[in-house]
């Protein structure tokens, strides 16, 4: 075994003692080494570098978006604070829940401006965000004026059906009124 090894070494020494041949061998080794380092070293590192650059660009973009979102949210917060009082009115105009007493108060004030008074109020049907009310007014006022006032309420009121009848000098107005709520989701 040792003899075989010594034979190989001596053959190698003999081959390398030829300077032209050894130069060619070293060149081949050098080129092979360069290719190996390129394939197994530089290419993966470059790939990592390119991926890092892409990631950095994406992160920079998303950070910019988040920054502008934050600015927007700060503005929204300011706007919300500014309209805090108006939200109270919105609750009155488009309540989250149906409270018949709130409507009665509105109708009493409205009819008070004419010569009518409320005789009765009955919630008829609730379908989603729409509430129907049957209301009866009695008095001697102008029906057009009363209808006009009711339809001008900020709390949206639509008169669907109106019955006007005269009895013993009094006018009776029976109406079916559609109102709206918006349930909080």
């Amino acid at each position: 075994m040792k003899e075989k090894f010594n034979l190989v070494v001596s053959n190698l020494k003999r081959v390398l003692s030829n300077s032209d041949l050894s130069y060619k061998i070293y060149m081949v080794f050098a080129i092979l080494t360069f290719i190996l380092i390129g394939v197994f070293g530089i290419v993966p590192s470059s790939k990592v570098f390119i991926a890092n650059i892409k990631l950095a660009i994406d992160m920079n973009k998303s950070n910019s978006m988040l920054s502008s979102k934050l600015v927007e949210l700060k503005k929204v917060e300011g706007d919300l604070k500014a309209v805090e009082d108006s939200i109270f009115f919105l609750e009155n105009y488009l309540p989250e829940q149906f409270n018949v007493q709130d409507y009665i108060v509105d109708f009493v004030f409205s009819s008070g401006e004419t010569d009518f008074s409320i005789d009765r109020v009955t919630p008829v049907k609730e379908a989603g965000d729409v509430i129907n009310l049957a209301i009866v007014f009695v008095g001697n006022g102008n029906p057009v004026e009363l209808v006009n006032i009711l339809e001008s309420l900020n709390r949206v009121t639509e008169i669907q059906d109106l019955k006007v009848s005269q009895n013993e000098g009094y006018t009776t107005l029976s109406m079916l009124v559609k109102t709206f709520i918006m349930e909080k989701q």
């Binding site: 019955k163 009848s165 005269q166």
Partner: peptide, 8 residues
Amino acid sequence: YIKDARYS
């Protein structure tokens, strides 16, 4: 003299 009226 309108005695009774109904409007929709």
